[in-house]
């Protein structure tokens, strides 16, 4: 996909700067049209930098806030094996948040600032984590549906045009391969278990299905930034395209689970060769995004609390490092 002069050069520059900007833009355009990678110190259009910073930091925030609904069940996991798996998974999410914050930092924003924005409610994260995880089966549904949708989104991002983002995604995709499987197996075990367990599983799938489909973002005709992101090779497939692929995969997998999707309008459209699903409640999506979900306040408060409670520890370690450096200098 070629992209020429996506960003016009600002007019108030001196002739020298202007020339440099134009050279930078030309180089950037060539890299993008060759489907190569932009690296941190390359010239890049301001809008490209901003788009990436927004997307990567939101992605990082989602990993960090996304730890909470699952951490909610670590202490109550019903077997020690499940406890270990869940703990490792939630811990991985902290790691993924870290990889992504690092990638975002290469764009010139400190992690501190990103964290401050998150805590101040100024940053977004994946809306789905504002729903409560109320039963053990939710650990299965989150793994299977939420991580499943995330992986669909993330696999193409391994080829995002911004090098550090793509590299972080490669690492994340590799590690996440177990996340969806463990979720699937939790549901499978429940589905093959007692009647109460099976009901628990179906109930969780019913609650997480629609929010998972909405994780791909608004429909293409209502997604103003998508086109630009695709022209920049950040996004590789449209929201609807990915959503349709995801539905197609879930339709098959849910059969293995012996459960059903809460959507009687799922079908394969022979004409378009795409999977279709029933209508989604985009008003609810916007409500939750705007802070009116069941857990928005709770999630932010929990992050704020951890950050505030940890302030004295971070300060102590920084102070200790300063003192040690002074000692070394004096010696």
């Amino acid at each position: 996909m070629a992209s020429q002069n996506l960003q016009s050069v600002p007019p108030e520059l001196s002739p020298d700067e202007r020339e440099r900007e134009q050279a930078g833009q030309a180089y950037f355009d060539r890299i993008i049209s060759e489907d190569s990678r932009i690296e941190p110190r390359d010239w890049m259009p301001e809008a490209y930098r901003k788009t990436l910073l927004r997307q990567i930091s939101q992605h990082a925030h989602s990993e960090i806030i996304g730890m909470q609904p699952e951490a909610n069940w670590i202490t109550r996991a019903p077997s020690l094996k499940r406890k270990a798996i869940l703990m490792a998974k939630v811990q991985d999410e902290a790691g993924h948040g870290l990889y992504l914050y690092s990638a975002a930092e290469t764009l010139g924003q400190s992690r501190d600032k990103m964290m401050d924005d998150l805590i101040a409610g100024k940053a977004r994260y994946s809306s789905i984590f504002n729903y409560p995880a109320i039963s053990w089966a939710d650990m299965g549904a989150i793994g299977w549906l939420v991580d499943g949708a995330a992986i669909c989104n993330q696999v193409p991002l391994c080829r995002a045009s911004y090098g550090p983002y793509g590299r972080a995604m490669v690492r994340i995709c590799k590690e996440e391969s177990f996340h969806q499987r463990q979720g699937f197996e939790i549901l499978l075990e429940l589905s093959n278990g007692t009647e109460a367990q099976k009901q628990m599983a179906q109930d969780a799938v019913n609650r997480w299905y629609a929010p998972a489909l909405m994780m791909f973002g608004p429909p293409d005709d209502d997604s103003p930034n998508s086109k630009q992101s695709m022209a920049w090779n950040i996004k590789r497939f449209s929201n609807d395209e990915l959503r349709s692929r995801f539905v197609g995969m879930m339709v098959e997998q849910v059969k293995v689970l012996g459960l059903t999707l809460p959507d009687d309008q799922v079908r394969f459209n022979e004409e378009t060769k795409k999977w279709e699903h029933g209508p989604l409640d985009w008003n609810e999506f916007k409500d939750v995004l705007a802070g009116r979900g069941p857990c928005n306040a709770q999630r932010l408060e929990r992050r704020r609390e951890a950050h505030d409670d940890g302030a004295w520890v971070r300060e102590a370690a920084a102070e200790y490092a300063r003192k040690q450096a002074e000692k070394e200098y004096a010696a």
Binding site: M67, M87, V90, Q91, A306, D309, R314
Partner: peptide, 22 residues
């Protein structure tokens, strides 16, 4: 220790305490 995961003073420490808990 498992309770610390998502509550540690810094994200790096979430991971460290998680490893010890595991």
């Amino acid at each position: 220790l498992g309770h610390w995961i998502s509550r540690a003073p810094e994200l790096e420490e979430d991971v460290a305490l998680g490893n010890i808990a595991l």
